[in-house]
């Protein structure tokens, strides 16, 4: 949501080519992500898990409601480039849709690679699995976590821009809805698994679209969240998440 708004702000101030706008937005949201980590999460790293969940929820609501208060009405988003329509194997696509799929695909593959192969990715996974020992091995935990939040923020910003191109109206509530959906997708796929998140995202998307086709569109949330519940009942760690037995 901040991504989309930042984009709106940027393009309405200066006419920018799309790619530049996308990158600029990603930088802004990355900084915001790292900032929130620094101010609201880092002091709580030793605190009970619940405290961090609460601040996460709180920060989300603060950002959303600040935007809502500053700009109570949804605004139209200018298209950043012309879209053309193709026919391909009986399916109608336009260049915008293709572009969104392409950009998100590239970003996800990139993220998966980075997390699995680079030093930072390894440090990140190590930190997640054992926060006490990793610093002793010389991993700068604070920097790793800050970077993680920045990357998360950047990707969310990119998602905001893409979303605003697909549905060219920008409103404060969009972030909350999409944010929760992102969470739902991550949980369905299994927290801690990028591939799971992608899978969860696609499952959720397909289910939602199917719902809208078959039932009135107001049923969409009902179905999405019920799906989440059902999956968590049978796979408490998500589809691709692994059930680690707690060591005693």
């Amino acid at each position: 949501m901040v991504g989309a708004f930042a984009c709106l702000l940027l393009v309405s101030l200066v006419p920018l080519p799309f790619i530049v706008a996308l990158l600029a937005v990603m930088v802004i949201t990355a900084v915001l992500g790292a900032l929130i980590e620094r101010v609201a999460y880092r002091p709580l790293r030793q605190a009970p898990r619940v405290s961090a969940i609460i601040t996460a929820l709180g920060c989300g609501l603060v950002i959303q409601n600040t935007t809502l208060s500053l700009s109570p009405y949804a605004r139209p988003m200018p298209r950043l480039f012309e879209s053309r329509t193709f026919e391909f194997a009986g399916v109608t696509l336009n260049s915008l849709q293709l572009f969104i799929i392409g950009v998100s695909g590239v970003l996800m593959l990139g993220l998966d690679f980075v997390i699995r192969k680079t030093d930072w990715g390894i440090a990140l996974r190590a930190t997640a699995s054992d926060r006490a020992t990793v610093p002793l091995m010389g991993v700068p935990v604070n920097r790793v976590i800050s970077l993680t939040f920045a990357v998360g923020g950047a990707l969310a910003g990119a998602a905001g821009v893409l979303y605003s191109q697909a549905y060219p109206v920008v409103g404060a509530a969009m972030g909350a809805l999409i944010g929760w959906k992102a969470f739902v997708a991550a949980v369905i796929g299994g927290i801690g698994s990028i591939r799971g998140a992608v899978l969860g995202g696609y499952i959720l998307g397909v289910v939602e679209v199917t719902t809208v086709v078959v039932l009135p569109s107001t049923w969409r949330d009902l179905i999405a969240y019920s799906l989440l519940l059902v999956i968590l009942i049978f796979k408490p760690n998500g589809l691709l998440g692994s059930a680690a037995q707690q060591k005693v």
Partner: peptide, 25 residues
């Protein structure tokens, strides 16, 4: 019984959304 912490928080959130959405429909 099976889930706790973050996951249970999400379950309660889902519950809230489901209730609200069901009442709307």
């Amino acid at each position: 019984f099976k889930t706790r912490g973050d996951y249970l928080a999400i379950i309660t959130l889902a519950f809230l959304m489901i209730v609200k959405s069901a009442l709307e429909n």
